[in-house]
Design a binder for these strands. Structure first.
Ligand SMILES: [Mn+2]
Ligand SMILES: [Mn+2]
Ligand SMILES: [Zn+2]
Ligand SMILES: [Zn+2]
Lengths: 144, 144
DNA sequence: TTCCTATTTAAGAATTATTATTATTTAAAA
DNA sequence: TTTTAAATAATAATAATTCTTAAATAGGAA
């Protein structure tokens, strides 16, 4: 999602988030990315246009965004956390070859799962979020 | 699952895994645990009965067990990997309060998902494993 | 507009989980 | 038994993340 700096500033104000250039730029970079980037990758991505933003600030900003529900953490088998600004419910496809994470939207499946659990429930457990992850291999035309 | 040392030795032999005391003890401890323990926790758990096993060996053994499909990694929001020796397909319930991970077996759901995707498939993606994680709160009788 | 102050930031140190290195030990094959 | 490739303990190294602190600054008040 491509968001302008002013769009983001407005969004921050609405949520009572103090609007600083590092924060706005970090969020913009995350929102633009389709790759579920890590903190390090975001840090790198903003270097060209906005050098001098520290990695610690990237981490702290990402945490803040997660707290404010503007982003979520995506954990994988790799030893680093990745982030996602797409906040509607969706599935993640993990390519075991390329480590790429792709979003997969499937309303039918979402409804099926919600329906299934709202009917059946889970004893002694209050469900907050159902996350489906699919591991496998993406088959691009020019692969192998 | 409670496995005897000799049971495990036999299992290792069948899979061509060199049978050492550290390995057998680590696997036994993991198999007995219901808690999806981390390497550190396994290391601690075996201290009493088998002191002197190094943490590095715990890590290497767990990796080996994952390679041999006797265990799998369980990733969470915490900054450490946890392990699971339950290898049939099952759901994980994450309690956001206690960080506990509970297993939840639901054949009906498993069949539903398998059926859904085998019919529909995912374009340009070969599905290897569908993992469902549910975040929420466990409501024990004596909570709060 | 200028001032004030709580919040944020940069820089770098510290922490923590995990992996790598290497000398020594050992399981198990011959 | 002897042999030897593989495993282990010890410890150093690495990498992701968090912490600390002094300097900068956003945004409200004056
Ligand atoms: Mn790490
Ligand atoms: Mn870490
Ligand atoms: Zn996503
Ligand atoms: Zn499990």
């Amino acid at each position: 999602m491509n968001l302008s700096l002013t769009q983001i500033k407005t969004q921050f104000q609405e949520l009572g988030i103090k609007s600083t250039l590092p924060r706005v730029v970090i969020y913009q970079s995350l929102a633009k990315s389709m790759h579920h980037p890590s903190a390090e990758e975001i840090h790198l991505a903003i270097q060209k246009k906005y050098p001098g933003v520290s990695l610690a600030t990237v981490y702290k900003t990402l945490d803040m965004l997660v707290q404010k529900s503007l982003a979520s953490k995506v954990v994988t088998n790799e030893d680093k956390v990745r982030y996602d600004s797409k906040m509607d419910n969706h599935i993640h496809l993990y390519c075991e070859k390329t480590q790429k994470i792709m979003d997969y939207e499937d309303q039918e499946l979402a409804d099926m799962l919600t329906g299934y659990f709202s009917k059946k429930g889970i004893p002694n457990f209050k469900i907050n979020k159902i996350q489906v992850n699919i591991n496998g291999e993406s088959k691009t035309t020019k692969n192998k």
